[in-house]
Design a protein around this nucleic acid. Structure first.
Lengths: 173, 173
DNA sequence: CGCTGTCGTTCCGTAAACGGAACGCTGGGA
DNA sequence: TCCCAGCGTTCCGTTTACGGAACGACAGCG
């Protein structure tokens, strides 16, 4: 584990919120020297310090730490998907994945049950995905949705790996 | 956060595995005094120490802190948002939330930094959200996207609670 | 121009987290 | 019985994380 990684993330989160190091230090009740050293990776912060800072940022502690690598992950020829959450509603069950699609390969997935839909939000790269006979394309920031009761494909357009979130919706039967 | 809580969990995890304090300390490469103090809550461990111990226990660190910190970050009057993941790319930082919007109330959120965009995928209910002067509407399965450098609103349309995923994109500056 | 406020970093004395060693305790052998 | 290996705790000198204060850099303003 690299304290520099944690530091960079703290700095990124702070700058997202548009607040200064001095301000965050005061709000969190830690010294400016402490926060500066933490963000620059020159210190090895204590639990108490980390807790004070992350609480003030409103971020769960785990967001700061490197890849857990123990999550349920599905690997295909091109797609790597990590299950983030499953939640159930009155009329459907949802599975939320974070998805990465490697460039240069097209992955074909079999049909799901009737009524199942897929929803994708692309974060980076350009994704071409959807029903095998009529795939859709979305750039970073774009969205895709299709009924997945037919075979469907996933592929990255261009050389860049695609990062996206994938929501699978299974209607209650 | 109470270091005593962390200490009790470490002790519990160690005893589940049936290994002694001395052994775990040796395996993790920390002093017995350090581990003893950590388990008894009489010390305020550093990130390095916590990392060494949890790695040796095979616990992805989240197990120690996930439960107390996994609480929803309550956005406000109508919206409840839970941060699922933060990930950093070469050109932006992303925060992925699961969001619920209670019916009957409109929530106004202040502007973010310039360049920040919000991406919403609606799973259930009908959501009306976006810039305060020109909100957009999306039904279940729909998507919304707007530049969030102006004040913006969230509201459920109708009586049904809205479930959605919210992606905040913070470009690197 | 200087004055002033805020920025992030660095300096520095203090407090405390660190690991190694010694401690008392307990449970098996021979 | 003595012996001894292993247990978790405590002691202690060293290292270092801590916060307050001082620093230089910068921007806004009269």
């Amino acid at each position: 584990m690299d304290p520099a990684v944690v530091g960079r993330r703290v700095r990124a989160l702070r700058e997202e919120r548009g607040i200064s190091l001095s301000t965050l230090a005061r709000l969190a009740g830690v010294g400016k020297a402490t926060l500066s050293g933490l963000e620059n990776g020159t210190r090895n912060p204590t639990l108490e310090t980390l807790w004070a800072v992350t609480a003030q940022l409103g971020v769960p502690f785990t967001a700061l730490l490197a890849e857990p690598t123990a999550e349920p992950t599905v690997h295909g020829s091109a797609v790597t998907a990590t299950l983030l959450e499953v939640f159930t509603d009155t009329d459907a069950t949802y599975e939320l994945y974070r998805m990465r699609v490697a460039p240069g390969v097209t992955q074909l997935s079999p049909a799901h049950q009737p009524g199942v839909t897929e929803h994708i939000t692309v974060f980076a790269g350009v994704l071409r995905a959807g029903p095998a006979d009529a795939p859709l394309t979305a750039p970073a920031g774009g969205h895709l949705r299709w009924d997945s009761d037919v075979p469907h494909t996933y592929a990255a357009v261009g050389d860049e790996e695609v990062a996206a979130s994938l929501l699978l919706r299974y209607p209650r039967r």
